[in-house]
Amino acid sequence: MTNPADNLTDRQAGSQGVNLSVNLGGLQMKNPVTTASGTFGFGPEYAPYVDLNRLGAITVKGTTLEPRKGNPTPRIAETPAGILNCIGLQNPGVDHFIREDLPYLRNYDTPVIVNIAGNSLDDYAEVTRRLSGAQGVSALEVNISCPNVKQGGMVFGTDCMMAAEVIRVVRENTTLPLIAKLSPNVTDIVEIAGRVAEAGADALALINTLLGMKIDIRSRKPFLGNIMGGLSGPAIRPVAVRMVWQAAQAVRLPILGMGGIMNAEDAIEFILAGATAVAVGTANFVNPAATMDIITGIQQYMRDNGITDINDLVGAAWK
């Protein structure tokens, strides 16, 4: 539901000199709010509820070189204030995405961040090349952290050298802003953040889901089709805020913060911890207009607190 009054407040805010625009490692965003990969499809799914033009960026579902069928069901389970998912990167493949999904997104005045994943360095390189040549791709978010795919993400995401290797390969094949999306399932987030920064990332995205599982006490078997899944939603927010706080202080790269952001207050918490921009994931399932409410709420917070530039809040909790 687009509310014309919301657009009006954007403009009024602008005229009052409130700056919401941020630069995420070379990606210029009109406000700091994007969608979390895998929770927003390719965009049109949420168009009835969200004015896609108002988003700071649209981050689309993880894309791989070949189509992926994904995991068996059940693929989702609820936990207190969170969800476990094991979608398994189901996607139609990069060529299908470029041909069928990207043209729709070009109708909007909003940058598109394409999330990519792969099983091998060659996969990452090839996906990167194909997307870099496609019109309408504004940045790449490299998923080295998806816990659901047996051979892929986890191996790269939890091993520092491998993570850096993936980023190096992607870097060699693109001039687009490169966002390295990190796994929280590591002993030292700071070390891995440092390695991918050295390897040429322009920004960091954190966090991806935390590996978890659920057992059905009636069948006495694991509940999810893939046994384990990734935990997201408000349940993981404190972990995510802590990791953003640590990475932001250790590495000189802008951060896209995410993990359980449900409202503007949560988003501001991430920004104060050091995130330049934020991504909204699970919240879309609960409130399809969550991103819109968050943008409006951030503006309101700035007005209420006499803040004229959102960038002044980035890392303000430790600066």
Partner: peptide, 16 residues
Amino acid sequence: EEYMGCGVGACLACVC
């Protein structure tokens, strides 16, 4: 029937 997340085709939780 399947367990659902988004309900709008975005999350791929509800497949058959």
